[in-house]
């Protein structure tokens, strides 16, 4: 593959700007360093282009691969230069350079929620369990679909009754219920204490991953708020779809179909 075919100079500039902008939005790179960092990674990409091209196996799109390469280059720059940068509030990303990573309040929350969703998804098969148990832990209104995602036989396993938060139970009883659910569904023999330790570890991992490469420093309280937003937003999406379906059903009923 010739140099000209792999990626054009314009595309390289565009991709590098998008990668750098993301780190600026996360406040990992100060805005004043934007041009320097971008030029550095573009030059490094050009110098190593032959090797980069030969390492491309065609298992993803070229653009995605370039993003991964440029992102890793940016991380190296941050590791080297972070001690020299003195990040302050003045380095906050101006709105005009947003390119999707803007600093309007709703957009920031949406970005964080999107990030949280990805972090949870990367627990793979454990993702439904992580989502469900954290929601239960924070006493949120649970969706039956989330219980179903964790255990398709939830009705036979009585999970609706086990996870009934209308009952007035304390944290100890909550973890007892978790242990009962895990033992029924996953055929394990664990105690409530083990579930408590596992859940605390999971929340810790989530907070750490959200905080990596970001100036946002979540603690347990702010993480709880973010998770509630995240869980509620998912419910709203489903409600929106339900509303449209309900409206269509009413129209069809009026028509006598």
């Amino acid at each position: 593959m010739t140099k000209a075919q792999f990626i054009s100079p314009e595309q390289l500039m565009q991709y590098s700007e998008m990668v750098v902008n993301r780190f600026i939005a996360k406040r990992s790179i100060p805005f004043r360093e934007k041009e320097d960092v971008q030029m550095y990674i573009v030059e490094k990409f050009i110098l190593k282009q032959q090797k980069i091209e030969s390492s491309f196996l065609g298992k993803s799109k070229v653009s995605t691969y370039c993003f991964a390469v440029l992102n890793r280059m940016c991380l190296e720059v941050i590791r080297k230069e972070i001690k020299h940068w003195n990040l302050s509030d003045e380095d906050k990303h101006p709105d005009s350079i947003a390119m999707g990573f803007n600093s309007e309040e709703n957009a920031v929350v949406n970005d964080e929620i999107r990030n949280l969703d990805k972090v949870i998804q990367l627990f793979f098969e454990e993702a439904p369990k992580v989502k469900l148990f954290i929601a239960l832990y924070y006493r949120l209104d649970i969706k039956e679909s989330d219980i179903n995602n964790y255990d398709s036989n939830y009705k036979e396993d009585n999970l609706l009754e086990v996870f009934d938060l209308n009952k007035d139970i304390n944290k100890a009883e909550l973890f007892d219920a978790f242990a009962y659910a895990i033992n029924s569904v996953e055929q394990k023999r664990i105690k409530a204490d083990a579930v408590r330790m596992w859940l605390n570890k999971i929340i810790g991992i989530l907070i750490k991953r959200l905080n990596t490469g970001s100036r946002a420093q979540y603690d347990k309280d702010s993480f709880q708020i973010l998770f509630e937003y995240y869980y509620l937003k998912e419910s709203d999406k489903q409600m929106g779809l339900k509303k449209v379906m309900t409206l269509l059903m009413v129209i069809l009923w009026i028509l006598g179909i």
Binding site: S60, K61, T64, A68, V69
Partner: peptide, 8 residues
């Protein structure tokens, strides 16, 4: 980087 891109 290829694996990162693919899994992303």
């Amino acid at each position: 980087e290829q694996e990162i891109a693919t899994y992303a």
